[in-house]
Amino acid sequence: MTKTAWVFPGQGSQAIGMGVDLLDIPEAKAQFERADQILGWSVAEICQSADDKVSHTLYTQPCLYVVESILADLLKSKGHRPDFVAGHSLGEYTALYIANVFSFEDGLRLIKRRAELMDSASDGMMAALLGFDRTQLETAIDQTPDVVLANDNNSGQVVISGTPVAVESILNQVKSKRAVRLNVSGAFHSPLMAEAAAQFKLVLDAVEFNTAQMPVLSNVDPLPSTDAAILKDRLNRQMTGAVRWREISLQLPLEGVDRVVEVGPGKVLTGIIKRTCPDLVLENVSSVAEFPQ
């Protein structure tokens, strides 16, 4: 029997116009309206803004969460259901919502505060490396203070995070086919986010987590769990912890998963997973037109 995992992308997958086709569906429109009341601004207007407001962290995270949640809810309403869920960075919040760990509204309030804190983080820098010697990279990180491996996406694609001096030092030491300095406000998924994480914990602690209806593979721990306390603890550690996506990808086949559906804009995660697990069936649902029959 085929086992399916739904995965939800994070920041970087947003695109102008995402989710616009959902506005013609009554239940989706109602969900947009609920989101607008919580946020105090229109998700649909931001997603359609020609000046790319949707790529501003403050807006990106709530918009992605809302669009992904609506797409997944519509899939569920048509009788589709995942056996496992996972999300990349902020996508983990959508995964937890779809597993009924918390309500759509509670998830959006968490994302709203998360986006505010991450947008206001001014210290730090992140850079993506593609095509590199992993041993050389890991050795350089071990020997360089104030920099960590923030996103381990697959064997040939990672993101490092830390102080500007430390990140630049790694880029100078490690040869790669391509190095990209990311346009972000801080050193996300690193110890430099400790202050923001401490503030966020106050909000997170107030939200009740329920037992997940299907196992969730978390960024900081790729082993699947349905335990509410474990899932909350993992989410609490996410802002300062690494996104261990390569390990999540490797875990899926071990759990018997043979089909992965990326729910949300773009095809970033299926592209990343393909390199690690080429035998998995990979599908995308980024719009109504892509809904399986």
Rank of each mutant, 00 (worst) to 15 (best):
G266V: 00
Q238A: 01
R246K: 13
R275M: 12
T270G: 05
Q251W: 04
K232F: 02
V268P: 02
A229F: 08
L269S: 01
K232R: 13
Q238G: 08
R259W: 14
L235S: 08
T270M: 01
L250Q: 09
V285E: 01
A242C: 13
G266L: 08
E283G: 10
T240K: 03
R275Y: 13
T240S: 05
G241T: 06
K232C: 05
R244T: 04
M239R: 04
R244N: 07
R259H: 15
I230A: 15
A229M: 11
V257K: 00
A242F: 06
A228P: 15
W245C: 01
V261I: 15
P265K: 07
G266Y: 04
R275G: 14
I230N: 14
V281H: 11
S286N: 11
E247F: 02
K232T: 10
T226G: 06
V263T: 12
V260M: 03
E255Q: 03
L250Y: 05
L231N: 00
S286V: 06
V285D: 06
T270V: 10
D258S: 14
D279Q: 10
R275F: 12
L282M: 07
V243W: 05
V260F: 01
G241F: 03
S249H: 02
G271Q: 03
V243H: 04
R259S: 14
I248H: 05
K274A: 13
G264Y: 01
R237P: 08
I273T: 06
Q238C: 08
E283F: 07
V261S: 04
R244L: 12
N236M: 12
I248C: 00
Q238N: 12
I230M: 15
A229C: 11
G241Q: 07
V263I: 15
